[in-house]
């Protein structure tokens, strides 16, 4: 999926009432299937940037065109549907629903958002979990898995509907070496098929040359 960003601006009002600009003048033309490294120090606005690209947030000004869709022109419900269909989101933490089994964690959200039939989704989920080395844990619950295994479940869920845009926000942070390698290999293997926006300090990713780099400024400007 080609992504075109045009002069993106986004500010937040802090509790004291002053406006804090987090994203300032970002423009980019990202080819479909590209690997994009999103860099910047902590607090530079990476999560806000990802939320803008996934349609969770709207920019104050500027446009985001994903494929043929201008996200800034869609309603919240349309953006929800677009995100459900097109975006696979992988986070550093904050990833699974504790009350659902592993297989339900992977499949249920996709059934709810209409990404396919249950049987077909379950079949693909089991294949994906097996490929990630956790096929035997499908009926367990998140608390019964290690942090690394949980992150692999989150990867399986994010990739189940073959999204055209993958957003990975520090996907291997805090993982054991084996899990980090599996997660990194899985994400990088999708390069060329899905557009990947990646923020990571992991050496496994820095060893790979990205197609684009978007550097976000560390210092917030005040309006």
């Amino acid at each position: 999926m080609r992504i075109v960003l045009n002069s993106l601006e986004r500010s937040f009002v802090d509790p004291a009432g002053s406006s804090r600009r987090v994203i300032s003048g970002i423009s980019a033309d990202i080819a479909a299937g590209a690997l994009v490294a999103v860099t910047g120090p902590s607090g530079a606005g990476k999560t806000t940037f990802f939320n803008l690209l996934s349609g969770l947030l709207l920019p104050d000004s500027g446009t985001i065109t994903a494929g043929k869709v201008d996200l800034t022109k869609l309603t919240e419900r349309e953006r929800d549907r677009w995100r459900a269909k097109e975006v696979g989101y992988i986070f550093q933490t904050f990833n699974l629903l504790g009350d659902l089994s592993i297989i339900d964690n992977v499949v249920l959200p996709h059934i709810l958002i209409g990404n396919g039939a249950k049987g077909e989704l379950e079949k693909r989920a089991i294949e994906s979990l097996t490929a990630l080395g956790i096929g035997d844990h499908q009926h367990k619950y998140p608390h019964q898995l290690s942090v690394g295994q949980r992150q692999r479940v989150a990867v399986a869920r994010a990739l189940l509907a073959s999204p055209r845009l993958i957003i990975a926000d520090e996907p291997t942070a805090n993982l054991d070496d084996a899990s980090a390698r599996i997660v990194a290999d899985t994400i990088l293997a999708l390069r060329g098929r899905s557009t990947i926006l990646l923020a990571s300090h992991d050496g496994r990713f820095s060893a790979v040359k990205p197609d684009h780099t978007i550097a976000l400024g560390g210092e917030a400007s005040h309006a």
Binding site: A84, V87, Y89, P109
Partner: peptide, 14 residues
Amino acid sequence: RELALLRILGIGRG
């Protein structure tokens, strides 16, 4: 956090 996760996955606030 759990509900935010559902939102991120594309499940509407309704």
